[in-house]
């Protein structure tokens, strides 16, 4: 085991948690990410590989699926895999082995910060942040949009739990924007 100590995207040793009104905003640091992009002629093999990794059908546009390892759609023939960091630090290697050269896999664990919004009444917060139609944004939906001018993935885990993945070096700005929206709504 190497001797370097990690910091969270907000710069702390422990992830930050904020509570306001009915909403909890939690910084998450314990996740691994790997992007998977099918190569020419490799779409079928890639979707089969993702199915083996997640134990669930490959998510279509705007969707997420899976249990321990989950996948969400990021673009035509492209997906992102997400899993707990402690158990899947080598998610990138695992996915690379699974796709057998039919897809390009890229380590993305450190490219993104993640903030989870939990509580009743998330729509009021999200509608202040982005153009997602919250009336039909349900568990299993995932999309990329612009929040505070940052390209972010928004994943609906349940009606009361939404994850937002944003560019890691803008974590502070994104966190500020989310807090302001929560305080504005409640």
């Amino acid at each position: 085991m190497h001797r370097l100590k990690a910091i969270t995207a907000l710069g702390g040793t422990e992830p930050r948690v904020d509570q306001h009104g009915p909403i909890t905003l939690s910084e998450k640091s314990g996740f691994a990410l790997a992007s998977v992009a099918a190569r020419v002629g490799g779409t079928k093999a890639t979707t089969m590989a993702i199915k083996r990794l997640t134990g669930a059908p490959v998510p279509g546009p705007g969707q997420t699926n899976g249990t321990k390892i989950t996948a969400f759609w990021t673009g035509p023939d492209q997906w992102m895999l997400e899993a707990p960091y402690n158990s899947h630090e080598k998610l990138f290697e695992q996915a690379t082995a699974e796709v057998k050269g039919k897809a390009s896999v890229t380590e993305q664990s450190d490219g993104w910060c993640r903030f989870d919004l939990q509580g009743e009444g998330l729509s009021a917060v999200m509608e202040r942040l982005c153009a997602i139609n919250m009336h039909n944004f349900e568990a299993g939906h995932a999309t990329r949009t612009s929040i505070e001018h940052l390209g972010c993935f928004v994943i609906c885990r349940t009606k009361t739990h939404i994850s937002i993945l944003g560019p890691r070096s803008s974590a502070g700005s994104l966190h500020h924007g989310l807090l302001i929206a929560i305080r504005s709504a409640y």
């Binding site: 546009p61 673009g75 035509p76 990329r144 949009t145 390209g151």
Partner: peptide, 14 residues
């Protein structure tokens, strides 16, 4: 009518 390119930069990059 004008045929033009739009890049979904803050979306799926299509």
């Amino acid at each position: 009518p004008h045929t033009e390119l739009w890049y979904h930069e803050q979306g799926d990059r299509s």
